[in-house]
Amino acid sequence: MKEKLKELRENAIKQIKESENLDKLNEARVTFLGKKGELTAMLKSMKDLSEEERPIFGQLVNETREAIEKLIDETKKNLENKELMYKLEKEEIDVTLPGKKIKVGAKHPCSLALEEVERIFGGMGYEIVEGPEIEKDYYNFEALNIPANHPAKDEQDTFYINSDIVLRTQTSPVQIRTMETRPLPLRMISPGRVFRSDEIDATHSPSFHQIEGLIVDKNVTLADLKGTLELFAKELFGADTKVKFRPHHFPFTEPSAEMDVSCFKCHGKGCRFCKGSGWIEILGCGMVHPNVLRMCNIDPDEYSAFAFGVGLERIALLKYEIDDLRLLYENDDRFLKQFK
């Protein structure tokens, strides 16, 4: 009997080890461990043994069963693993194939630039304010210290609806409207469309965007203006940007200045981009003229203010290196898609 058991065990091990898949392994299990299997048969034949031999043999049979079961379990795990590996191998894909895209549109470069500006000034506590695009002559000119027949009115090539109503030539009227109605202190920027009768070419458009900025408070200084706009330039064009303020003239600010930034292409060395100067003119600014404050019922002896105006298209063209203004208004998909 013992030899028979030994032989069974060896046969079982052999057959299990030779099982090349789970079905074969199951066959082996049935053959040896099944209800009608060989080991069961052997147990049944125990009745022929003597009382003394029976427990000893029973123990041997159990040992054999455990050994076989253990081996089956191990083999099963191995086979399962192998099958999974095989399956995974068959599932291999070419990961370099293109991804499936959800169609997402692009932002207009002007919006992209505007969001940057809004982020910078929003963070400094400037609220974003809007005003009418078709504006009263009073707000566009007179309240900005540009009286009737002032040459600046001609310089700005205004589109007129009638003698009292114009297409605003600047976002500055929003300054006035805001100062007239809001409590002080005040910090605002006002982006929006403006219009001037310039023929369309690579650098001119009769319709473009400006961003006006204004702060009114008790102790606002030219030094504050410089500090704020320098911060703005560094945020917008990079931390290594240098700024230069040059005296200038605007009817609604005094003192006035223009701000140049160091050319971000050549970093001030001089290139075609900055016409060799190393600097790029970026915005006009100044301390709000006392006449303007007075017209908004703000006492210039108590309050001071600074204001600035920057062309959004100019920033977009410079920042994204677009060489023709007309592209901004053609809305060619191939152009827009580059600003995702």
Binding site: F121, G122, G123, M124, G125, Y126, E127, I128, P185, L186, R187, I215, D217, K218, N219, V220, T221, L222, A223, D224, K226, G227, T228, E230, L231, F245
Partner: peptide
């Protein structure tokens, strides 16, 4: 001319 940041009362903005 120095470069400073306006102090004044803070505003909410945005």
């Amino acid at each position: 001319i120095p470069t400073t940041i306006p102090d004044g009362e803070s505003t909410i903005g945005g």
